[in-house]
Design a protein around this nucleic acid. Structure first.
Lengths: 331, 331
DNA sequence: GACAATTTTGTAATCGATTACAATCCGAGT
DNA sequence: ACTCGGATTGTAATCGATTACAAAATTGTC
């Protein structure tokens, strides 16, 4: 292992000078700089980042914890994060929890034990007490999900109003019996999107039969199965609002499997606007979240937290967008 | 910041003892252990991982570099990696390059500068000289892609024979004019899958008109556009082999956009077996790679390298599988 | 050429843990 | 009670950089 001392000896200077060449070149005379750089090259010296980080008490690394990287939505958010982080000199490391709460916890330790300067959580499954606790001592930003009643800086869309918008679109098309496939209700996201559905129905004086609201888990399979359940009803709904695109795709597949057509027999609207949503047939009408923007904003917020700058707006809500494609039609 | 010294003082022991309680509890008397643990709890002490890592010269962290996490195939590989890494006490950190070679380079530095014990590359776009160089000094495993003529430990399928298998399946169905949409040819993966296509055609004495082989870039759009190109031919192919599923989906979409049907008018076969491949209509016939297995094997290999164990088989080739669904039919 | 001001460089402390080695404790055996 | 040996614990060096502070070198001025 070649260390800074070896370089110093070879260049015939002190370790301090070598360090300065690497970190504050403007304070070193050009002739000296050259000598040092030559020595570095000859020895193929690589500074040990751990030592630097220990001394500086900063890592220039931020951690992004994702519930499921297989979900393309998160990768868009990540791209947004990176687009800010990289130019600012931050490494972005990604922790995948595979929807496992314990692993979410283990990533907290990376932060607490100083292996990262800050944390962006794209999930909030874990006990909110714990997150609050961590956020009190370390820079943490929530993106996508938020915690009710918490003051942790958050970037997200307003899921309630988005879901309401989606449902109202169906209502405008003349649908009255509208099924809702919710996300898991132990997650705020799942609850909010359901709330939006109820709000839309209520505002338009439409009755919601309990059987028309089914709890899914954001998976294709759950969308498929719950839709089959709908279709087994004597009077099945004429439209379905699914709380995410994957479930919406499951719904479409289920409808087609029964020999029915989308949107001719049933309309389906989703939520997320996945890449594949415009690829499937029929192309899915859905709510697009500004995933990239969410990432950008979250990272900007985090950098401010890390630098202990004043954070003005701690809760940022971005606009969503209804993307009308082919999976819905007037009733 | 509460450090080990604070704990030591509070518990009235030396820092060495505190450290031992944390790392080698069996060498400390029970009474002492209790005292120390109590102090730790009272002070809410968190050991600084950087300091430990610096002293130990190991991080128990491995880095996985992915060209594009939005690609679900990689997330499956990642899951495989995690399934081995986590139980063995390794943190898995993910670096996304967004297909940017420079960023691939920057992740190498994490390794060189000792912020990770080892590296699994799910991409090999970068100059192979550079990778070889790094692999000489640090534990590196290649997964999915390999470098021709290199001895870096690698886990992958045999892309040539897989592509040949896919093409031969079409030939068995009676197709003779088979179009091929390749991946980017500056990537081994792209070249190999094309080679497999050529081999299959040659073995069956089928002529390959140059216009039937088009270079894509693994994106949906390229699949779409190149297929339109095929369809503009006076005698267009009766079947298309796309070097990945995304392009295959683009192909299907293009075919449908011209009022033609898959598989009735043209057969399409893909490569990868994405989750969505069984969702689209028609369900895509494709080659499934054992992504999870690849990840597992890669991680096992890497652990051996890190521990400087003897590595017996350095190049592991796993079996792929032809998944027959609905997008191909006899000609 | 002497002196002050400024730039450049060096010495050694420091970050916060781990651990080699030394010192101390404790109980068994006599 | 005393000695010996293993179990515990403590002291201080160490990992490899950064940086406060001091010292030396350089530059400019008269």
């Amino acid at each position: 292992m070649v260390g800074i001392a070896d370089v110093a000896k070879k260049a015939n200077v002190s370790t301090a000078t070598v360090s300065r060449v690497l970190t504050k070149p403007e304070t070193v005379r050009e002739r000296t700089t050259e000598k040092v750089l030559r020595a570095i090259k000859e020895l193929d010296y690589q500074p040990n980042a751990l030592a630097r980080q220990l001394r500086r008490l900063e890592t220039n690394t931020i951690l992004v914890v994702v519930p499921d990287i297989a979900n393309p939505f998160f990768s868009k958010v990540l791209r947004g994060i990176e687009s800010i982080a990289i130019p600012k000199g931050y490494q972005v490391l990604l922790g995948d929890t595979g929807n496992d709460v314990d692993r979410e916890n283990s990533y907290f330790n990376i932060l607490k034990q100083k292996n990262a300067d800050g944390l962006i959580l794209l999930t909030a499954r874990i006990d909110s007490q714990v997150i609050e606790e961590v956020a009190r001592s370390f820079p943490v930003v929530l993106a996508c999900e938020y915690i009710e009643g918490s003051s942790i800086p958050t970037v997200s869309i307003d899921n309630i109003s988005s879901a309401r918008k989606a449902t109202e679109y169906l209502i405008e098309l003349g649908h009255e019996r509208i099924g809702c496939i919710t996300g898991p209700l132990d997650v705020v996201l799942g609850r909010d999107r359901m709330k939006g559905y109820y709000q839309a129905m209520a505002r338009n004086n439409l009755l919601v039969e309990p059987v028309l609201v089914q709890e899914g888990d954001f998976s294709f399979e759950s969308g498929f199965n719950l839709t089959l359940k709908f279709l087994a009803l004597a009077k099945y709904p004429t439209a379905i609002f699914a709380a995410n695109d994957e479930m919406a795709m499951g719904a479409i597949k289920a409808i087609q499997s029964k020999g029915l057509q989308v949107p001719n027999d049933l309309s389906v609207i989703g939520f997320d606007d996945l890449k594949f949503s415009s690829i499937i047939d029929p192309e899915l009408t859905t709510i697009a979240q500004p995933a990239f923007d969410i990432g950008e904003n979250a990272m900007e917020l985090l950098i401010k937290l890390i630098n202990k700058e004043e954070v003005l707006r701690e809760q940022i809500i971005l606009d969503d967008q209804l993307v009308v494609r082919q999976s819905c039609r007037p009733y």
